[in-house]
Write a protein that binds this DNA or RNA. Sequence first.
DNA 1: TTGTACGCGTTATCAG
DNA 2: CTGATAACGCGTACAA
Lengths: 337, 337
Amino acid sequence: MSSLYDVAELAGVSKTLVSRVINGQKGVSDKSKEKILSAMKELNYTPNAIARSLVLQKTHIIGVVLDNLCEPYFFDLIKGIEHSITKSDYDVIFCSGRNSMELKSKYIKFLSQGRADGVIIYGSSLSDEKLIKELSVSNFPFIVVENEVEGVNINNVVVDNAFGSKLAIEHLVEIGCRNIYHVTGDMTIKASVDRRDGYIKAMQNNGFTVNSNMILMADFSVESGYEAVKAFIEKNGTDQLPDAFYFGADTTAFGGMMALEDYSIRIPEDIKIVGFDNDKPHDIDRKLKKLTTLSQPLYKMGESAVNMLISDINHITPEKQKLLYYPELIIRETTRE
Amino acid sequence: MSSLYDVAELAGVSKTLVSRVINGQKGVSDKSKEKILSAMKELNYTPNAIARSLVLQKTHIIGVVLDNLCEPYFFDLIKGIEHSITKSDYDVIFCSGRNSMELKSKYIKFLSQGRADGVIIYGSSLSDEKLIKELSVSNFPFIVVENEVEGVNINNVVVDNAFGSKLAIEHLVEIGCRNIYHVTGDMTIKASVDRRDGYIKAMQNNGFTVNSNMILMADFSVESGYEAVKAFIEKNGTDQLPDAFYFGADTTAFGGMMALEDYSIRIPEDIKIVGFDNDKPHDIDRKLKKLTTLSQPLYKMGESAVNMLISDINHITPEKQKLLYYPELIIRETTRE
DNA sequence: TTGTACGCGTTATCAG
DNA sequence: CTGATAACGCGTACAA
């Protein structure tokens, strides 16, 4: 690998001139420029970005750390980020936590050690909080998408999950449901907690009381949704069904709908279903009804995250910012006769 | 941001000792170590990876440049890469070309300018060749997955697409097909060309001649598959169908199967279908038959790519390596009565 | 065990 | 227009 110095030597000029040519700056005679250009060609010279970053104290890189890259759920977020990045003078690199907290934390450190000017972190897990609090004292620019972390002043793009629950319950009540159950998502994820709490509150605001037996525990897997509903039916029978199941996640809802199908319970005639996340169904074998769900504006959240982070990096906004998005109710077949 | 020098000053020792503590090296008294550690804490010191890379001439980073991150097709490749990386002492970062050659090329340059020790490039497009030839003169370590580039000596993990066509045709012939048509994938992609050429050759080897009207042009989209088959039927009627359609991609095949369904043509009774790629079906609305297809070992290819690249980086293997994988035929409902 | 001094490849300042 | 020279933050011979 030849360096700027090698080019200067071969061209018979100083490093200063070479640097100017590389960066397209004024102050180089045509003759020198020519010599430099041909020297660069001859040596197959490539500027070293690392050295450049060191002296400039700037990488022009924004890092993105996701829980897992292999997850279609993140596609909209990624696309939103990419779209905003294109309009900026930054480059993005992506790192995957592969569903491991340690790895995620490692990559955040990795990027914050000077390898990026700022980091976008998708944080949904409750256990992210410790990591984020640590990072927030380092005054390295970063922004957390999805998770709201209490007690720390950070850049944050969040979605009001409880509001989503409110929309779901109000919709179900409006179409005549009275006895509405909730099947949770993964309760180590903050969003799941907020959705459940939002469910309870929305039920109360509509004049219903929620007993603990009205909340079925599951996680984000299709299987858990299937098992939760199946166990419920086996315990209570098919004549003790609620008017509706409100699931904490679409994946879980898909599983639940399969269980209902196995017991020949008709959707939406016998029971209404609402999910959360606006996922594409995974299972081609079953012809599931199209699911009424709540959609998070992940694309917009990605865009905003980039913009907010860049303005933080450049100290355009001295204060940390927080942006709240609202989920949108998408009514489909599972709540429509 | 405090530097190693700040820590040394606060601890009242030299930079050398601080450096040793950071890197866990011997040769520091317990007393000094303590002072240094507490100084690091007090200053909230984080080592600067950029400076470190500069002096060490090593980043311990492997970059991966994909055509597009938002594409489930790459999941297996990514997982394979990640798996091998975990067992190494490298970190991975991912960059997305967002389906743009320029962007892809930009990110390859970006990484090769000292920001990574080596790059894994997924290259499927024919137009990648120019870019790859350029890179190959720079002696920067890299490996190309999928595309075979003629005339240059590079690290390469490829899959024998023509062999896949051979498997497909032999399978179809074996179950009684004589009149086998081909619907191409995106012909700007080298794999599509190889699959078509493999189809022609395999047909000839089985004693059939291929006329140009037996090859329908499409790309990788579901729509193109649908349109290609629909146009064919509208032109030739439903009584002039071939025994089988061999598609250059599963996505295309899904589209084609939908078109056949629209004309009430039964699969596999009336016509057999073989695809390529072993994709998951996208469309939940249709209850498509499970598709016989060819599976590429992308996971293994990802693993191998990492290993080969690392041994290139460390000059373990002086020569460039080339690894050839074979697709595997997965027989499902569309060729089974 | 400790510290000094130099170099990694760049950019920027300031004379000439 | 040109060229020394000093940084950027770190690792490492080498010397003490």
